[in-house]
Nucleic acid binder design. Sequence first.
DNA 1: CAACTTTTATAACGAGTGGTAGATAAGTCT
DNA 2: AGACTTATCTACCACTCGTTATAAAAGTTG
Lengths: 197, 197
Amino acid sequence: MVMGRPRSFDMDKALDEAMEVFWRHGYDGASLAMLTKAMGIKAPSLYAAFGSKEGLLKAALDRYALRRSEHMRYVLAGPTARDVAERFLSSIAESHTDPANPPGCLLVQGGLACGAGSENIPFELASRRAQTETELLERFAQAKADGDLPDDSEPVALARFLSTVASGMGVIASSGATRGALREVARVSLGAFPGKA
Amino acid sequence: MVMGRPRSFDMDKALDEAMEVFWRHGYDGASLAMLTKAMGIKAPSLYAAFGSKEGLLKAALDRYALRRSEHMRYVLAGPTARDVAERFLSSIAESHTDPANPPGCLLVQGGLACGAGSENIPFELASRRAQTETELLERFAQAKADGDLPDDSEPVALARFLSTVASGMGVIASSGATRGALREVARVSLGAFPGKA
DNA sequence: CAACTTTTATAACGAGTGGTAGATAAGTCT
DNA sequence: AGACTTATCTACCACTCGTTATAAAAGTTG
């Protein structure tokens, strides 16, 4: 079996560039012209590699998830539920204002609302956001079973609360909120979490 | 002076329809075709009345602000700062899941990220969101001065926290979160607020 | 080298974008 | 009624959108 002409661009580098464009402009706002220019390839190469604009987004989201899974591993490894919450919000304050990336969260910036023909993108993003919430939920349910969280605590509500605050932080970060402001939100939010003051 | 042919459509009705389209599809995702169809007018009438697509958005945002100002008057009239916070979050849980409107908040759904040529829309939305935060801030600063809030409380941080939670609720509402879920988030969030348990 | 497979670049596709002339219709005021 | 002003309609503008046909280029394998 013959191999054919090898790909002349680095897929991961190209995906990082595409991720940045989607992050900054959203799915609808990211045009093929922007994407191909940022990725340094022409449209046919893009379509050969990713199938469609939506396919490219999903590949970029997969790569984004890869980054986040490292964060989440650290977050979930917190010794107590409260530590997990603290790590979760703090790491978001940092990552959402990391000057190496566009401000905010790709899963929020990517598109809450889309035009005709892109109706499923918001669902795609929402399902990826839900995954993080589920991870928190499972961690808190375990903490409750272990007696780390009080018996009257509500893991579902706590996970949803943290996930909601995280989305909110994504919104204000994209509007220019500083890292200090996000840290403050994280600190105040933690006041709603059971455990030592 | 002569008056000319009178406008044959109801501006407020048309703006309500435009608002709904922007709300559901975002600024970039709302095409002129969608807008004119929903408003029941043709493009030249739209441009004569609003100048541009962006002008139409601003007019719709003004009308949206009008609605919200009624809510905020009630919210800010709460007897204590904690009541204000409770009213704020509760009213958002209701309004963001009002079946009469698209889910979520127009100021979030409208566009956190936009394409080329619409770069100022996110700023426009952010500045309107900031207004609500400022109103809360002023109310809490007053509460602190009155001794309603403790001396060590931070009105800026509290207002920002509530505003962030509100944005987060907008995000999860647009992803299909139920009214019950939003109420739960509101209830948990209130735990971060100083005052009686 | 020659056969084969895949990627690349050029160029274009039809559809849809926001926006606008130009003509016509519908009112008001003298 | 007739002059005047403004709104509405039809048709269209140049442009961009996501996507793709075609053919040349660049490798690997026999």
